[in-house]
Simulated scan of single mutants.
Amino acid sequence: MNKIRLTAVALAGATLLTVAGTPAQAETPWCTGSDLVVSAHDMRSPSSASKAHQIRFAAAEGVSCTIGGSLSDVRFLDADGEDLGIEPTVQSGEYVEVPVGGYREAAVYVASQIHGPRVTPASIRITLPGQDGPGDSVTVAWPSNLSPVVRLGSLTAPVS
């Protein structure tokens, strides 16, 4: 009986040493353009004075990564890829880093005035935030018209 207890204690001790000696899991890598599936969608606006959109950042199959900060070099493009000249205001909120992967996504909310002239972009080109500066540039289809007065928020976990 004592041999069994000693063997169990020895195995438990060896297991603890193995776990304690294992290096910590590597941090989740920063998202690049190829890590993400980026899409733009119409959404219901919380204000009757604005039209709302959401840009979603989902991880590609089998990827887990982290993204945070603000988008830069945001350009709305026509069907020929020409810049429509819309200069969005990028509102910087509290800086957060959002883990993306599995069911977790990140989002940027976009608002434009409901009244006034309208333009219908075919796509939006954005530069993702990199870990130490600007990241990759991605272009995605844009779902509908908007006013040339556009505001973009910072990356955040999406509101359900």
Rank of each mutant, 00 (worst) to 15 (best):
S123A: 09
V150R: 00
Q113Y: 12
V9C: 12
A24P: 12
A8P: 06
S144K: 10
E97R: 08
T7S: 15
P46H: 11
S70W: 09
Q91H: 10
T127G: 07
V98P: 01
S48A: 12
G21W: 14
D80I: 09
V100P: 00
P29M: 04
A122T: 05
A26S: 13
V90P: 00
S45W: 08
F57G: 01
A141I: 06
I86D: 00
G102M: 10
I126P: 00
G33M: 03
A14R: 08
L77D: 00
S123W: 02
L77A: 04
V108W: 01
D136P: 04
V110P: 00
I86R: 02
P29N: 05
A58D: 09
S70H: 11
G153I: 02
I126A: 02
A14C: 13
T7G: 14
V19K: 03
R5Y: 15
R118M: 12
S64T: 12
R125V: 05
E82A: 14
V150Y: 01
L36Y: 02
S34K: 12
S70C: 09
M1K: 12
L152V: 01
D78V: 06
G93S: 07
E94I: 03
P99H: 06
V74F: 02
G133A: 05
L146E: 04
G116P: 00
S147V: 07
E105V: 06
A141N: 10
S137G: 09
S112P: 04
S137P: 05
G81L: 10
A10S: 14
V98D: 01
V98H: 01
R44N: 13
D42S: 11
A59H: 02
A49L: 12
R125Q: 13
K3Q: 14
A60I: 03
M43V: 09
G33A: 04
Q25E: 13
E61L: 11
A40W: 01
E27N: 10
V19M: 07
R118F: 03
Q54R: 15
H115F: 11
S47M: 11
P46G: 08
S92T: 15
I4T: 11
E97M: 06
S64N: 13
G21Y: 13
A14D: 11
Q131R: 08
L71I: 02
T139I: 01
G135E: 02
I124W: 01
T66D: 15
V149K: 06
V19T: 08
E87K: 12
P121W: 02
S92E: 14
I126Q: 02
F57I: 00
P29T: 09
A24V: 14
G93H: 07
A10V: 06
V119L: 07
V138I: 07
L146I: 05
T7K: 15
A107N: 04
G101L: 01
A14N: 06
V38F: 05
P23T: 09
S39N: 13
A59D: 02
K3G: 12
L6Q: 12
G135F: 01
M1E: 15
V37M: 15
A8L: 15
G81E: 07
L16V: 06
